[in-house]
């Protein structure tokens, strides 16, 4: 078996062999199919490679992508997506946990550095309310998920069209980003602190951040997560 990573880099090389017209057709198919995050990556990359090889062989015989895959690329891509098997839970769980813990380590580092820099100028209260932090973190995680899903949705929608409304899409992304930041920056001020609390200064914050980041790094290599 050839790994999906290998297939992706090979795909990047081979696409250069396509004519301009065929490349446009194939690129839209590829993006549309790859942006379905819930599908098995291995199967996705294998079928994309088969289609690309087919297209290159057809091109050598003077055929176009339109003749090979039909006049309705979106309908064709939907057929492929409909038949691709979903990603296995065994693959999703490590991937999502890796991203989550990586994000936590990054937040700890930012928190530590911010407290350190701020404490140079004024007295900083480094009290942590774990329940509040948990809520903020869950909201952050969910809103990141929504933001990614929304941007992928806009890209998928813009494919297969001669004239996509770039301005409208940019405005939509802009609004969603503003919403994202106001939610995540505003929320801590809206929810009053509650439950137990403890002191968590910049040194423990940075140390736990670094340790967690190293664990993530090790796990990524060890279990070949990405």
């Amino acid at each position: 078996m050839i790994s999906s990573k290998q297939l992706i880099s090979e795909n990047n090389e081979k696409r250069k062999l396509l004519t301009k017209e065929n490349e446009k057709y194939y690129d839209d198919l590829l993006l549309y199919i790859r942006l379905q995050m819930k599908l098995s990556e291995q199967q996705t990359e294998e079928v994309l490679m088969e289609m690309l090889d087919h297209l290159i062989e057809g091109q050598n015989e003077g055929k176009t992508a339109r003749e090979i895959f039909g006049d309705d690329p979106k309908k064709y891509a939907d057929e492929i997506v409909g038949e691709l098997p979903p990603a296995k839970v065994k693959k999703i769980v490590p991937f999502v946990s890796y991203l989550t813990f990586n994000l936590i380590s990054l937040l700890l580092l930012i928190n530590g550095v911010t407290i350190f820099v701020a404490s140079l100028f004024k007295k900083v209260d480094s009290t942590v309310f774990p329940f509040n932090s948990l809520i903020q973190f869950l909201v952050l995680l969910t809103s990141i998920g929504f933001e990614i899903e929304f941007i992928f949705y806009l890209i998928r929608k813009s494919l297969f069209r001669k004239h996509s409304s770039k301005i409208k899409d940019s405005v939509a992304v802009g609004i969603s980003v503003v919403l994202f930041f106001s939610l995540n920056i505003g929320l801590p001020h809206l929810i009053p602190n509650f439950g137990p609390s403890f002191q968590f200064g910049w040194i423990p914050s940075i140390i736990t951040g670094v340790i967690l980041w190293l664990i993530c790094f090790w796990a990524k290599k060890r279990f070949k997560i990405i």
């Binding site: 199967q43 079928v47 088969e50 289609m51 087919h54 057809g58 003749e67 090979i68 895959f69 039909g70 064709y76 057929e79 492929i80 409909g82 038949e83 691709l84 098997p85």
Partner: peptide
């Protein structure tokens, strides 16, 4: 059309 085989192959797999 030639491309028709790929959805079929995926389904059969």
């Amino acid at each position: 059309s030639e491309g028709t085989v790929y959805p079929v192959l995926l389904r059969l797999q």
